[in-house]
């Protein structure tokens, strides 16, 4: 299986609750970093973690973007489902929800050996507390996908550099890394930030 296939199979296995298929793509001692919490070790621990999401039994995760870079695979997801039981102390609302997420997967010996994922639970819980807050996640505009390795290296440097500028509070220099008409998608129920000026204003407050 290619690195891409491993990551897509993992998502399919989670969507269908197929732990056998999950066991075929994950290393037995897989390390899972879910959100900001402590790492979970092994397949048994992972099964418990997934069972905790039983309030959304019909949850379907769609892969929106995927990038293979050496032994690592990045993926951006949208998850859609309906609450069918109490979740984090929130009684069952029956609400349909849609929220974003992303993961990085490290591949070793043909299996996924380590996974880092962050799902937008802030948006998810807001949508359950105020169901009318649910809104479609913005769809991406079509982009030109370069395969030039030098462009990829430059792009990685640019994305990292913007974080350096943010840490230095050098918001007046964001134009070095950001397009003037850039768009920041914040989450299913929060408006996008449109334009570099709006982004600078948001960061300064």
């Amino acid at each position: 299986m290619t690195h891409e296939q491993l990551v897509r199979r993992r998502v399919e296995a989670i969507n269908t609750g197929d732990f056998e298929a999950l066991g075929e793509v994950l290393a037995p001692d897989v390390i899972t970093h879910y959100g900001s919490g402590e790492a979970v070790h092994g397949l048994d621990a992972l099964a418990g973690l997934l069972a905790g999401f039983g309030a959304f039994r019909d949850l379907v995760v769609t892969v929106d973007d995927l990038a293979v870079d050496g032994d690592r695979v990045g993926a951006r997801y949208t998850s859609r489902g309906r609450q069918q039981a109490e979740f984090l102390g929130i009684p069952n609302t029956g609400a349909s929800v849609e929220f974003g997420g992303a993961g990085i997967h490290r591949i070793e010996d043909g299996r996924i050996a380590e996974v880092w994922t962050v799902d937008d639970w802030a948006s998810l819980t807001r949508q359950l507390r105020t169901p009318h807050a649910a809104a479609p996640v913005s769809t991406p505009s079509p982009i030109v996908r370069s395969t030039d390795p030098e462009v990829v290296v430059a792009n990685k440097r640019t994305a990292s550099h913007w974080v350096d500028l943010a840490n230095a509070r050098a918001f007046d220099r964001l134009g070095e890394d950001w397009a003037q008409d850039a768009r920041v998608v914040q989450g299913g129920d929060v408006d996008d930030v449109v334009g570099l000026d709006a982004l600078v204003t948001l960061l300064e407050t």
Partner: peptide
Amino acid sequence: SYSGIATYYLEDGKITHEWFNDDLFALM
């Protein structure tokens, strides 16, 4: 202390889109 995995699209060396994805649930 919280984690994040953001997605960026770039064109002509500049960021055109970011899917912001910090774990604000943990922060809150």
